[in-house]
């Protein structure tokens, strides 16, 4: 069943077309990767799916609903959450609080002016469980500014997970992460398979080909091919337009 359906999406910045006539469907429970060279419009695509940018044309259907014009926070409530390419956590808050805020958002509005939020046992317990999922439970009381880059990448995903999403938009979760932490990230994402649908934007080809059920290749804002990892490896247009000199990486 299709969870996310993108129909003929288009977005231009002045004369530059960042997204052109882009269609895409992501099956529920799958990991769908979007790859493409720099400037292919991957981050612009995520911004439109998350609701931070409004497309010029086309539609985004999520879970059978047209969300093209919904603001970010409404989409999150429907179960469409994102992580950021550049870690975007609350640096002066503890890891637990970063996640607790997302849990708190899922529980409904926060117009509660009196009781101490940090002593809400139910929220803290749920937040701790999410930190456990990504392997950060022992760092819960550290401030986000104090942990390593790789840990902050994991926190980024924990925050998105804590919103209780049906689907995660992961914008380059491996960006700037060393091989060891990258491995940890791949393992963690693998544990999420089936539990939550993932749209994965990633530069790390190795990770993409290990994780993805399907891959869409974006070049200059256009989807030039979609298929299984094997189909993409074999696709002549992909090899020519995108992979070219990076041939080795693809066969690896």
């Amino acid at each position: 069943m299709t969870l996310l359906l993108v129909e003929r999406l288009a977005k231009s910045f002045g004369a530059v077309a960042a997204t052109r006539d882009l269609s895409l469907d992501v099956a529920e429970g799958s990991i769908h990767a979007v790859i493409g060279p720099n400037g292919a419009g991957k981050t612009t695509l995520v911004a439109q799916l998350a609701g931070e940018l409004r497309p010029d044309a086309g539609h985004v259907l999520f879970d059978g609903r047209d969300v093209t014009r919904l603001p970010v926070h409404r989409r999150v409530r429907l179960g469409l959450a994102r992580s950021f390419q550049i870690s975007n956590t609350l640096l002066s808050f503890s890891l637990l609080e970063n996640v607790a805020l997302a849990v708190q958002a899922r529980h409904g509005h926060s117009f509660r002016f009196w009781a101490d939020a940090s002593r809400d046992g139910r929220i803290n317990a749920e937040a701790l469980a999410v930190l456990q999922t990504v392997g950060l439970a022992d760092r819960r009381d550290r401030l986000a500014s104090e942990v390593s880059h790789g840990e902050r990448r994991l926190l980024e995903i924990a925050i998105a997970l804590a919103t209780g999403p049906k689907m995660l938009l992961l914008d380059e979760p491996m960006a700037g992460v060393g091989p060891e932490e990258g491995q940890r990230m791949v393992e963690m994402l693998r544990t999420l398979r089936g539990r939550v649908t993932i749209l994965l934007i990633e530069h790390d080809m190795d990770a993409v080909f290990r994780l993805a059920d399907r891959i869409t290749v974006l070049v200059y804002g256009r989807a030039i091919a979609t298929g299984t990892p094997d189909e993409i490896r074999a696709d002549a247009a992909v090899r020519e337009a995108y992979l070219g000199e990076e041939d080795d990486e693809l066969v690896a």
């Binding site: 603001p71 926070h73 999150v76 975007n88 956590t89 002066s92 808050f93 708190q104 899922r106």
Partner: peptide
């Protein structure tokens, strides 16, 4: 807590549903 979060990073707060 939501208000303090907005001060630090409003975009993040919107991205978790506020």
């Amino acid at each position: 807590r939501v208000l303090r979060g907005c001060k630090e990073n409003e975009r993040r707060m919107a991205a978790i549903g506020y």
